[in-house]
Write a protein that binds this DNA or RNA. Structure first.
Length: 426
RNA sequence: GCGAGCGUAGCCAAGUGGUUAAGGCAGAGGAUUGUGAUUCCUCCAUUCGUGGGUUCGAUCCCCAUCGUUCGCCCCA
């Protein structure tokens, strides 16, 4: 193809598949509204240093996946690879912490990572996420997880599993890191090549290596849970009890570590077995250290993000996006009738009826065929005779019944018309 | 960034080193100049992602490139 096509790793969401997207957004909006979360919209690009400092210079996301460029003023900018950093920047910049108490925020939008496209992974993708800032209470962790679960359930997904872990505070993690390195170093030569380099750069990441041999070696490795301080341990136990009390089942996974540097204590993922290699549909955790690190006041916080493309893929496995059908399909023929048809269609729309006007000027037979295919409940017919008498033929498409009615009377009783439509549509 | 598979119309597809590139769906027109089923007829790829090479000749073989799919890395 020499014609212009969408950039690699980007996708058009076409009208035929938009239904699931809109459904997810409206479900999330409704649930988050009920939980008193407020939407926040932050810019799609930010100073590069925000992500370098927030996400961590050593992470792959920052190291090799960012869309970074210099603008005409020679500032280094980056298309956001995730949502939390921007929200936190905004929180600090506008002093939202000074408004007292906790802030419950949510966002949705496009994110960008320069990666090789694959099932459930694109370069431009969409996330929906929440951030609960200003509380270190275990109930905050439980609330946020419960909301994620509720959203996923309400949009109709099943067979999801919640994986949960605590990675403690910075000092817990430091002690554990040393213990893990001490355990793995004797096996260094037997580890897969990636894990060998991670041994010095980011040893915790070895835990979720997919290499079978590495996993076998990890069988006897120390667990992070043994290195939690008493306070961290108490905190985690409390969260487990709260979740159990909410009826949310979870799997404890001491190998679960997250890719971004800012996480502390609670980390979790919600996975589907139905997505191939990209199984995680929602992931998040607590990030008590991030806000001070970005220049804000000491503020504990927790959040998560869902990958919307992945949700849509799962929904498509369940059922096709529901087709939209119209109430009235208006066919007309002849100059006067066409003009009246346009007016009639417009008044139906103003009254809230979904109305499609045939613009083809082709034979009535063709227009009826299109009416049929549009899935319309009823067809309105205007020809020379109707134009003359200011009437319209109203035809119910699934029964074929047809009757004439004065144009002026069609909307005389909109409630009744709506009722008829509901009855006659199958 | 690495590895493997694939690229024929809007969609799904068959196909072969030789020349008019099956079929189906969708679409357009007509049989039916005011009534949607069905049926029937006609039309809808000078071209097989793109560029180059081998060849008397390439959609088919080779190379490159782009895209895509799956996996690795990593992540939502």
């Amino acid at each position: 193809m020499t014609s212009i096509q969408a950039i690699r790793g980007t996708r058009d969401i076409l009208p035929s598949e938009i239904g699931n997207w809109q459904m997810i957004e409206s479900v999330a909006r409704q649930i988050l509204g009920c939980a008193a979360y407020q939407e926040i919209r932050t810019p799609i690009f930010e100073q590069t240093s925000l992500f370098e400092r927030g996400i961590g210079e050593a992470t792959d996301v920052v190291g090799k996946e960012m869309y970074t460029f210099n603008d005409r003023g020679d500032r280094s900018l980056t298309l956001r690879p995730e949502g939390t950093a921007g929200v936190v920047r905004s929180y600090i910049e506008h002093g939202l912490h000074a408004q007292g108490g906790v802030q419950r925020l949510w966002y949705t939008g496009a994110m960008f990572r320069y990666e090789r496209p694959q099932a459930g992974r694109q370069r431009q993708f969409h996330q929906l996420g929440v951030e609960l800032l200003g509380s270190s209470d275990g109930r905050a962790d439980a609330e946020v997880i419960a909301i994620a679960t509720q959203i996923l359930q309400t949009i109709g997904l099943k067979d999801l599993s919640l994986h949960l872990n605590s990675i403690g505070d910075a000092s817990d993690r430091q002690h554990y890191r040393e213990a893990l390195v001490a355990y793995l170093t004797p096996f260094k030569e037997q580890l897969d090549p990636d894990s060998q380099t991670r041994l010095t750069r980011n040893p915790l990441r070895i835990l979720d290596s997919k290499d079978a041999n590495t996993q076998a070696i990890l069988g006897n490795a120390p667990s992070i849970l043994e290195y939690l301080s008493p306070a961290s341990q108490t905190r985690f136990d409390a969260l487990l009890a709260l979740l159990a009390d909410l009826g949310i089942s979870s799997t404890l996974n001491s190998r679960l570590v997250r890719g971004l540097d800012y996480y502390t204590h609670t980390v979790f993922e919600i996975q589907s077995a139905d997505l191939g290699a990209q199984a995680t549909v929602c992931a998040g955790g607590r990030y008590d250290g991030l806000i001070p690190q970005l220049g804000g006041p000491e503020t504990p916080a927790i959040g998560w993000a869902m990958g919307l493309e992945r949700l849509v893929i799962l929904l498509q496995h369940l059922q096709a996006s529901p087709p939209s059908s119209v109430d009235f399909y208006v066919v007309s023929r002849g100059e006067a009738a066409e003009a009246q048809a346009l007016k009639l269609a417009q008044s139906l729309r103003q009254a809230g009826f979904k109305t499609e006007l045939d613009l083809s000027r082709s034979a009535f037979g063709k227009q009826f065929k299109r009416a049929d295919r549009s899935g319309a409940t009823a067809c309105l017919i205007l020809g020379d005779a109707e134009a003359e008498s200011k009437t319209v033929q109203l035809k119910w498409l699934n029964s074929g019944e047809q009757s004439a009615i004065a144009q002026a009377d069609l909307l005389a009783n909109p409630q009744q018309l709506r009722q008829q439509l509901t009855q006659r549509s199958t």
